[in-house]
Design a binder for these strands. Structure first.
Lengths: 183, 183
DNA sequence: ACCTGAACACCGTTCAAGT
DNA sequence: ACCTGAACACCGTTCAAGT
């Protein structure tokens, strides 16, 4: 005799994302997720393959949201700022995506592609099609590195972190723009 | 009646660093470390406060080694390459230091200071004392971001990753150098 | 067809008992 | 003074039994 469903994949992923931000990755346990969605831990295995799979779904949902955020940006500065703003809203999820992943990268290829599209588009405009990929990697590397260090309180030598962001953003965009037609 | 020591903090940290690289952070368990140093897990607590403390010691040993490596570099390109070479030798440890840390940053302030000294020195030479800190943060952010993405197989859109490194390195150094006296 | 309690293997950690 | 087995709390995961 069928039982009415008490939860769903969406509810589970949503609860997991909440827990990740409020309790850290270590606090994202199957039991905690189960409690949030009103079910016992073993029931989660009807919807997700296990904790690793659930973490992957969280990463992919995060990248999808990041992609749609970045797609709306019209200038390089706005794309870079989009990264940073997003990382401040979802610091743990952002680092999950970028950080020491589970084995084969924590999210599927297509999710990365979607999140990269905006940077590549902008990079092509700045540096020309020939150097679009190199330029995109330079921009992304700087933003990801800056944010990673910032989120881990790595900028602890004083000074104004916002000023450092603007300084770097200006320098990076400037140097990429100078690429057009040479290098 | 005293018993002769069967291990030491150094041996424990060394075993932990090995395990971190060969088995990943999850494989760095107290039992695995104990087995490597020829002791039972509870005995480790005579030398380290617990797993978190041991991981911290690993991070600090890693930063100390990175610092001495970078201190030998004489140009900005060599400092940046020093980061990357080091990260290829100790990928897991490098990401442990930079990545989503345990709570209050995974290593003590002084260890970060030591590892930052070389970049700040070089940045001062390139950009002038006034912008040394901003420039150092730009250089470090780019290198850390590039390496983080590289280690997590994030550069999966084809193209030559080494070429992208050299492209970005050139651009970054160039733009920082142009800073002198203006901005 | 979904949910659950009970069980298992595996963690980190504590501690009384050994030498 | 250091080491150990036993124990505890807490994970992820499996599965037979319920409805």
């Amino acid at each position: 005799m069928p039982t009415p469903d008490k939860t769903s994949v969406d509810a589970i992923v949503s609860a997991a994302r909440d827990l990740l931000e409020t309790e850290s990755l270590a606090g994202l346990t199957m039991q905690a997720v189960a409690r949030r969605v009103g079910v016992r831990a073993p029931s989660l295995y009807k919807r997700v393959e296990g904790r690793d799979h659930l973490v992957r779904l969280v990463a992919e949902a995060t990248l999808t949201e990041l992609a749609s955020r970045l797609d709306a940006a019209t200038t390089a500065a706005k794309v870079l700022d989009g990264y940073r703003t997003f990382s401040h809203e979802y610091p743990a999820a952002f680092q999950l995506c970028m950080g020491q992943g589970s084995s084969p990268s924590v999210a599927g290829h297509s999710y990365w592609e979607a999140a990269s599209a905006a940077v590549i588009r902008i990079s092509g405009e700045l540096a020309g099609a020939e150097h679009a990929l190199d330029a995109a990697r330079t921009l992304t590397a700087w933003a990801v590195g800056f944010i990673t260090i910032e989120l881990n309180s790595g900028f602890n030598l004083g000074g104004d972190v916002d000023r450092a962001w603007k300084f770097g953003r200006t320098k990076i965009i400037e140097s990429i723009t100078l690429t057009r037609g040479r290098y």
